[in-house]
Lab assay of single mutants.
Amino acid sequence: MKATFQVPSITCNHCVDKIEKFVGEIEGVSFIDVSVEKKSVVVEFDAPATQDLIKEALLDAGQEVV
């Protein structure tokens, strides 16, 4: 499964690193693409990962998800 999250609070590479760390810890996540320019995060994943778990990880990383 693939999901795109709009994350307007992404401003720098530190944000990218933190997002990759938090989302990458979720079992089932196979790909993460964070774009500072587009302020988006694209995640490819399989169970047990879910969109809700990914959104929670983004929030835990200090990001706003819309």
Rank of each mutant, 00 (worst) to 15 (best):
residue 1 M to L: 09
residue 1 M to H: 14
residue 2 K to S: 08
residue 2 K to I: 12
residue 2 K to D: 05
residue 3 A to C: 12
residue 3 A to F: 07
residue 3 A to S: 08
residue 3 A to G: 07
residue 3 A to V: 14
residue 4 T to Q: 11
residue 4 T to W: 14
residue 4 T to L: 13
residue 4 T to C: 13
residue 5 F to N: 05
residue 5 F to C: 07
residue 5 F to A: 05
residue 5 F to M: 05
residue 5 F to D: 07
residue 6 Q to Y: 15
residue 6 Q to A: 08
residue 6 Q to T: 09
residue 6 Q to C: 15
residue 6 Q to N: 12
residue 6 Q to G: 08
residue 7 V to R: 00
residue 7 V to M: 05
residue 7 V to N: 04
residue 7 V to D: 05
residue 7 V to L: 08
residue 8 P to D: 09
residue 8 P to S: 11
residue 8 P to C: 09
residue 8 P to M: 08
residue 8 P to H: 09
residue 8 P to A: 11
residue 9 S to T: 13
residue 9 S to G: 10
residue 10 I to G: 04
residue 12 C to F: 08
residue 12 C to M: 10
residue 12 C to I: 08
residue 13 N to G: 14
residue 13 N to D: 11
residue 13 N to Q: 15
residue 14 H to K: 15
residue 14 H to M: 15
residue 15 C to H: 12
residue 15 C to P: 06
residue 15 C to A: 12
residue 15 C to D: 15
residue 16 V to N: 04
residue 16 V to Y: 05
residue 17 D to R: 13
residue 17 D to Q: 13
residue 17 D to P: 06
residue 17 D to G: 08
residue 18 K to G: 04
residue 18 K to R: 11
residue 18 K to H: 06
residue 18 K to L: 13
residue 20 E to P: 02
residue 20 E to K: 15
residue 20 E to A: 11
residue 21 K to Y: 09
residue 21 K to M: 08
residue 21 K to H: 08
residue 21 K to Q: 09
residue 21 K to L: 08
residue 23 V to S: 00
residue 23 V to R: 00
residue 23 V to N: 01
residue 24 G to N: 07
residue 24 G to H: 04
residue 24 G to C: 09
residue 24 G to I: 05
residue 24 G to R: 11
residue 25 E to D: 11
residue 25 E to H: 09
residue 25 E to T: 10
residue 25 E to W: 08
residue 26 I to Q: 01
residue 26 I to P: 00
residue 27 E to H: 07
residue 27 E to K: 11
residue 27 E to W: 06
residue 27 E to Q: 12
residue 27 E to T: 10
residue 28 G to F: 01
residue 28 G to H: 02
residue 29 V to C: 04
residue 29 V to G: 01
residue 29 V to S: 00
residue 29 V to D: 01
residue 30 S to N: 08
residue 31 F to Q: 08
residue 31 F to M: 07
residue 31 F to D: 04
residue 31 F to N: 10
residue 31 F to Y: 12
residue 32 I to V: 11
residue 32 I to E: 01
residue 32 I to S: 00
residue 32 I to H: 00
residue 33 D to E: 14
residue 33 D to I: 11
residue 33 D to P: 03
residue 33 D to K: 11
residue 33 D to M: 12
residue 33 D to Q: 12
residue 34 V to D: 02
residue 34 V to Q: 01
residue 35 S to Q: 10
residue 35 S to F: 05
residue 36 V to L: 11
residue 36 V to M: 09
residue 37 E to V: 10
residue 37 E to K: 09
residue 37 E to Y: 05
residue 37 E to T: 09
residue 38 K to Q: 09
residue 38 K to W: 10
residue 38 K to R: 11
residue 38 K to Y: 10
residue 40 S to Q: 14
residue 40 S to Y: 13
residue 40 S to K: 11
residue 41 V to Y: 01
residue 41 V to D: 01
residue 42 V to P: 01
residue 42 V to T: 13
residue 42 V to W: 08
residue 42 V to S: 09
residue 42 V to K: 07
residue 43 V to T: 01
residue 43 V to P: 03
residue 43 V to K: 01
residue 43 V to C: 03
residue 43 V to D: 02
residue 44 E to F: 15
residue 44 E to H: 14
residue 44 E to D: 05
residue 45 F to D: 01
residue 45 F to I: 02
residue 45 F to P: 01
residue 46 D to V: 13
residue 46 D to R: 11
residue 47 A to D: 06
residue 47 A to E: 09
residue 47 A to S: 10
residue 48 P to L: 00
residue 48 P to W: 00
residue 49 A to S: 02
residue 49 A to L: 02
residue 50 T to G: 03
residue 50 T to Q: 02
residue 51 Q to R: 14
residue 51 Q to L: 15
residue 51 Q to V: 15
residue 52 D to I: 08
residue 52 D to S: 10
residue 52 D to G: 08
residue 52 D to C: 11
residue 52 D to N: 08
residue 52 D to F: 08
residue 52 D to Y: 07
residue 53 L to K: 13
residue 53 L to P: 00
residue 54 I to E: 03
residue 54 I to N: 03
residue 55 K to G: 04
residue 55 K to Q: 08
residue 56 E to H: 14
residue 56 E to W: 09
residue 56 E to Y: 07
residue 56 E to M: 14
residue 57 A to S: 04
residue 58 L to P: 02
residue 59 L to V: 09
residue 59 L to T: 06
residue 60 D to H: 13
residue 60 D to L: 14
residue 60 D to N: 14
residue 60 D to I: 11
residue 60 D to S: 14
residue 61 A to T: 04
residue 61 A to P: 02
residue 61 A to G: 03
residue 62 G to N: 05
residue 62 G to L: 14
residue 62 G to R: 04
residue 62 G to Q: 07
residue 62 G to E: 07
residue 62 G to C: 15
residue 63 Q to G: 05
residue 63 Q to D: 04
residue 63 Q to F: 15
residue 63 Q to S: 05
residue 64 E to W: 11
residue 64 E to I: 15
residue 64 E to S: 10
residue 64 E to L: 13
residue 65 V to F: 07
residue 65 V to P: 07
residue 66 V to D: 07
residue 66 V to S: 09
residue 66 V to F: 05
residue 66 V to G: 07
residue 66 V to P: 06
